[in-house]
């Protein structure tokens, strides 16, 4: 199925790199490196040059941290969305927010996709996406409220739970008027999950792909990689790419990443191994 994200349409076998652009002071990986306007603009320029199809702009750190109310989130994100729309019209603009009032402002400013990383916490979010013709990411958090960490969470079957929650959110988005080809599901590694859960989600990602909804994975440098390998955030690229390979083989379509080039090469390689992408140029033994 084609994927339509706001103004942009992608073919059924196309994979997409979604580059993380944080307008925060305290996100775990970049530690505020793109909080200011200048570095954020440079980051967008760089990831577009690196081949990212999507930028995912966030104004609030996912984990605990300084309070960012809707007004402050709008101040951080909306003018920036407008700037990206004007200066990089070819890139899909995603905004990572759970608040419908923020979604309304960013969609008006040109966002193509609402990344609801907190899994339908604000039920009005899908209505905003529908109203503006934007896409929506439906995420599994196991019912965790925004900006909280999981504590002693357990599931009978984490994959079944992720499928049930994300597909039910997807159906709700559909009912609210978001077109089927604009709805994406995300198992949300680490969100409402311990490391064993995230490893199992990775191992069984094919079950999510089999639902028929396009799957987004957000693996980049996360704690489940760090805990698995005993690696601090800056040393998690190799583990991230290993997890990326497994998800790519299963057929994930969108990859939310810090490192665009490395992930693109990994996904292209696996996509070709899976027989979904021809090699770029093949002549060895075929002369």
């Amino acid at each position: 199925m084609d994927l339509r994200l706001g103004r942009h349409t992608f073919g059924p076998d196309q994979t997409l790199m979604m580059a993380i652009v944080n307008r925060t002071r305290d996100s775990f990986f970049d530690q505020g490196a793109t909080y200011d306007e200048g570095p954020a603009r440079e980051r967008v320029r760089q990831v577009v040059e690196d081949g990212a199809e999507i930028v995912d702009i966030g104004g609030v750190r996912a984990g605990y941290g300084e309070v960012v109310d809707a007004a402050e989130e709008i101040r951080r994100v909306v003018p920036f969305v407008a700037w990206v729309r004007e200066h990089h019209p070819g890139v899909v603009i995603s905004v990572d927010t759970w608040r419908s009032e923020v979604a309304r402002e960013v969609c008006a400013a040109g966002a193509d996709l609402v990344n609801d990383a907190w899994g339908g916490h604000d039920p009005a979010l899908v209505e905003v996406a529908a109203e503006f013709g934007a896409g929506i990411v439906c995420t599994h958090t196991g019912g965790l409220p925004p900006r909280t960490d999981p504590y002693r969470v357990e599931y009978d079957d984490v994959v079944a739970a992720a499928i049930a929650e994300t597909t039910s959110l997807a159906e709700r988005a559909l009912a609210a008027g978001v077109p089927r080809e604009s709805i994406v599901i995300d198992p949300a590694h680490d969100f409402g999950k311990n490391t064993f859960h995230s490893l199992e989600i990775t191992r069984r990602l094919g079950e999510m792909v089999a639902t028929g909804w396009p799957v987004l994975v957000s693996l980049s440098n996360k704690d489940f990689v760090g805990e698995t390998l005993g690696a601090p955030p800056q040393e998690r690229l190799t583990g991230t790419l290993a997890a990326t390979s497994v998800c790519a083989l299963a057929g994930a379509r969108i990859y939310r990443v810090h490192q665009v080039r490395e992930t693109r090469a990994t996904v292209d390689m696996v996509w070709s191994i899976a027989g979904r992408r021809p090699p770029l140029r093949a002549i060895r033994a075929l002369q």
Partner: peptide, 16 residues
């Protein structure tokens, strides 16, 4: 008899 002429060996860029 260039095997790269065959569709099963087509890459994205045609080397021949």
């Amino acid at each position: 008899g260039v095997l790269a002429f065959l569709p099963e060996y087509a890459g994205q860029v045609d080397p021949v």
